[in-house]
Design a protein around this nucleic acid. Structure first.
Lengths: 201, 201
DNA sequence: ATGCTGATGTCAGCGACTGTCATCACGCAC
DNA sequence: GTGCGTGATGACAGTCGCTGACATCAGCAT
């Protein structure tokens, strides 16, 4: 029998998820989370850099899934196609944990500080993609743009996934958003008005 | 002669910019900023919600420039073209203040907490664009995508503007990023490998 | 046994932020 | 001009996020 109960980190994450959902993020003290996990506040901050971080524990792992899939995709793919492969891998990884993701998403959506942190997470993925594409030989400019656009697409798909009551797979939503992007951007020269004015709506 | 020196808000912003640049953000206390501005810490927090906010004071004004230009653009424009018009308006607004923007950008880039706040600012612009496009009759899906993509483009252009020693106008950089986006996205069907494999690099 | 290690607890302290009340020049009413 | 509200500010106390320093102590290696 070991001296401490195992899984301290996990216990803290569970406690935080529960308490943030019950009382809200701002009304939950770090000490309260630690207490529910059977630990002290000091230990909470040994595992997580701040109160928000406890909801973003798997960030690094997911980033690796993402850039790993990009790096592993055939070299013949265009930057956009390689990026798409990465996003699909991410979607496949996330799909089985939809319930957890939904709970997290609800809490995050309800609290500006957490939304901010979520944006930071995505930005770090964007940077990682930029680097990975760079190593593939994609020019710096394209890589930077790809990084930003990829996450723009992912944000849209993820929001639909967690928002709609419906049951589409994240996978499909990512592909749909990518297709929309192509349709959205691909046609007329930017800045030029469109003659027949494709009817808005 | 009035009881207090005027422009308290501006004085706080100037003091913060100076101190954050001198000592770094984390090593500057709110009390120190207030003191340099000839005020107390309590007054600092009456003007700004938090320590970071003091660097983001004109956020709302710029958002209005952006969405205002989108709303005012000809109804015949595609969503992307209307968005581009908004971004160019933003660029024109920012161009004359390049020096200030550069100082701000340097400080923000050096501090993760501030970068996070910057992302939140851009996200709020993105939401505003989504709403504005919605009012123009653009479908919800396209509007959401446009919001994200627009800011992806802007981020890229803005980063180049504040990073490079060179002297391109933000205006032009925005247009260049938009053109790149079209080139980047516009060609082959997403997900399909490219046969002749356009040589990377 | 002895000593090291690593996860945890304890304690003290700083700084961000807030609620509350006091102050007091200014302008307006009369 | 006297009195009165008003609004920007100061003063003060308190909570909470977060950190550094040191103590504790089961288990493991030697």
């Amino acid at each position: 029998m070991s001296r401490w109960k195992p899984d301290a980190r996990r216990r803290l994450q569970d406690a935080a998820l529960a308490l943030y959902a019950e009382r809200g993020f701002a009304d939950t003290t770090a000490a309260a989370v630690a207490e529910r996990a059977g630990l002290t506040e000091r230990t909470f901050f040994r595992y997580f850099a701040d109160k928000r971080d406890v909801l973003f524990g798997n960030e690094d792992q997911l980033r690796e899934v993402f850039v790993g899939a990009v790096a592993a995709s055939p070299a013949a793919l265009t930057p956009l196609a390689a990026t798409a492969a990465g996003l699909r891998a991410l979607a496949v990884e996330l799909q089985p944990r939809q319930d957890d993701q939904l709970r997290r998403a609800r809490i995050i959506a309800a609290h500006p500080e957490l939304r901010e942190r979520e944006l930071a997470k995505l930005a770090s993925w964007s940077s990682a993609l930029r680097e990975t594409l760079g190593e593939r030989g994609v020019g710096a400019d394209s890589a930077a743009l790809a990084g930003e656009v990829a996450l723009a697409v992912f944000r849209v798909a993820f929001r639909r996934w967690t928002t709609q009551g419906a049951d589409a797979e994240l996978d499909e939503l990512v592909q749909a958003a990518l297709d929309e992007l192509v349709g959205f951007v691909g046609r007329p020269p930017v800045g030029a008005p469109v003659e027949p004015a494709p009817p808005p709506r």
